[in-house]
Structure formats: structure tokens, C-alpha cells
């Protein structure tokens, strides 16, 4: 067998083989987005104190399997060493007129919007729960946090997402409440389709009507990822998408030293109602 015969044999093998249907483009995009979100959390750019919790889960993804840890807050994480034919991302201009150092807004309108998100989140904690306000201690993240982060360009314009997170406590047990808002154009689809864009794969999803609006409430379906228990997703007509999620674990860490909540802090209906709370509707 020479080179030409081998080439022909390979084409012959492929041509005669019954290939499965083409892979789903939508599925590939979803997989990419989930990986990007895990990387974001793992690199600490989320800034909401979840670095420790996702280190184990997200490191393999964040490092592209190389095992090399990424610098916290590092701009432009690459899954392979930079090459001459690749370029670094350009981050949005900050309020000081200079390009940001990473995708997180440290000040300005975007950062203020994230702070407002947290301020409202602590007011909607379920009845009977307290919302501690404790700073970071050692490697333990603060009990409350917020951030605004540049996600991507949409139609040539910057599109951002916002997160706020707060611990909730009851009877010595600690869980977590989080709200995440995505500006128009970043995520689209029907109610349960939107729910697939959150941190983990949903195991189930139901549509809960709230005042004539359809809100998806999803439960976690990945047995290897127990950070989040359930979450609600709602897409506003203007394209803004709001997620509200609960975790029974402090800082979403299943191995947290804090005792986890024994029961879900919010019902599906309560979660759904929070997702359509206008105070969480950030307008770009």
C-alpha cells in the first residue's frame, strides 16, 4: 500500500461507513456557553466568592485539561498557549476612559447596577431566614457579593450580565440565593430553553405562570454538580433574561463546613415570582 492507496482507502472507509446524523449546532453552542460560564466562575472573575466551590468542578474545563491553574481575574484565558496568529480580547472601556483590565466592571453604571441587584436581593429573602453581612475571612468568601461582567458583543455592541448572591440562614443552616441578569441578545428561547443556559444541566423543567407570564422553574439534573438545587428563568419581551436560583449549600459548596439547608427555601411559585420581579429587570 502506497500513500495514494492509503488515501483512497480512507475515503472509501468513510464513504461506506454509516455516519450518524450531523451533530446539533444548538447543542454545541449550549455546551460552549456552559463551559464559558464554568470557566468564568473558576477563574474568579465572577467575583462573588465562588472560586473555592467550583475549583474542583471547573478546573478541568478552565484549564482545557492541562491542569494548569488560571490566574484569578486574568483577562483572556486561553485553553492553549497564545500563538502568533491569535489576538487578545479587547475589554470594554471603563468609566475612567481606559480599557478594563478584565471583563469585570469595577466602577460605573454597570457596577452600580450589580450593587442595586444585591440590595434588592437581600430584601426578598424568604420569610424566617436571615441574610448575614459578613466579609471574606481567609479563603471563605463574603456572605454577600455582586458583580457586573462583560459577556460578549451583540450586534457589535457590548452586552453584560450581572450577578448578586447572598447567604441565607435559618436554624443554624446556611444556603445561598442568587440572581443573574443577562442583557438582551445574550440568551434567547422559550421558558425552559432559557433555563438550559444557567449554570448546570436541568433535570426537569416546568412552566409556572405568574401574572400571565411564563416562567421556567428547573431542577438540577447533573448528579456530579450539586451547586444549585433549582432555578427560575424568565425572558422579558425586550430580551433581558433573569435567573433566580437557590442552593441548599453556603456559597454553593456541597462540601462547605456550614450545615446545608434541609428544605428548599423557596417554593417553585416563589422562585418564579422573583424571576419576574421588576426590580431585577436591568435595562441596558
Amino acid at each position: 500500500m502506497d500513500e495514494q492507496e492509503f488515501r483512497a482507502s480512507l475515503h472509501h472507509a468513510i464513504d461506506r461507513s454509516t455516519a450518524p446524523p450531523s451533530m446539533s449546532t444548538t447543542g454545541a453552542v449550549h455546551a460552549g456557553r456552559r463551559a464559558a460560564r464554568r470557566r468564568l466562575l473558576a477563574t474568579g472573575a465572577a467575583g462573588i466568592g465562588v472560586l473555592a466551590l467550583v475549583t474542583t468542578i471547573g478546573l478541568a474545563v478552565a484549564t482545557g485539561g492541562s491542569g494548569a491553574p488560571q490566574q484569578v481575574g486574568a483577562p483572556g484565558v486561553a485553553s492553549t498557549p497564545p500563538r502568533g496568529d491569535e489576538t487578545k480580547p479587547v475589554w470594554p472601556t471603563g468609566p475612567d476612559g481606559q480599557p478594563q483590565q478584565d471583563r469585570t466592571a469595577k466602577a460605573g453604571v454597570k457596577a452600580d447596577a450589580a450593587k442595586a441587584l444585591l440590595e434588592h436581593l437581600v430584601t426578598v429573602a424568604p420569610a424566617g431566614y436571615t441574610v448575614p453581612d459578613e466579609p471574606a475571612i481567609g479563603t471563605a468568601p463574603p456572605s454577600r457579593s455582586n458583580q457586573a461582567q462583560f459577556e460578549d458583543k451583540v450586534g457589535g455592541k457590548d452586552a453584560w450580565s450581572y450577578q448578586a448572591s447572598a447567604q441565607i440562614r435559618k436554624d443554624g443552616a446556611t444556603g445561598q440565593l442568587i440572581v443573574e441578569v443577562h442583557e438582551p441578545g445574550l440568551i434567547s428561547g422559550g421558558a425552559c430553553e432559557l433555563a438550559k443556559h444557567f449554570w448546570t444541566e436541568p433535570g426537569g423543567c416546568t412552566v409556572v405562570p405568574v401574572g400571565g407570564r411564563d416562567v421556567a422553574v428547573a431542577t438540577a439534573g447533573d448528579p456530579g454538580d450539586s451547586r444549585i438545587d433549582r432555578w427560575a428563568a424568565y425572558g422579558y419581551p425586550d430580551g433581558t433574561v433573569v435567573f433566580v436560583a437557590v442552593s441548599r449549600h453556603a456559597n454553593f459548596m456541597p462540601d462547605s463546613a456550614d450545615r446545608p439547608l434541609s428544605t428548599p427555601p423557596l417554593t417553585d411559585q416563589q422562585l418564579a415570582a422573583l424571576a419576574v420581579d421588576e426590580a431585577f429587570h436591568i435595562r441596558a
Binding site: G32, R33, A36, G64, S79, E86, T87, K88, P89
Partner: peptide, 12 residues
């Protein structure tokens, strides 16, 4: 392809 998605902005 997932790794490509993550590196998309770098693979100009």
C-alpha cells in the same frame, strides 16, 4: 469545538 468556543476571541 467547546474548547474552540472558549478560545473564539483569541482565534481571530
Amino acid at each position: 469545538f467547546t474548547k474552540l468556543y472558549l478560545a473564539w476571541h483569541r482565534v481571530a
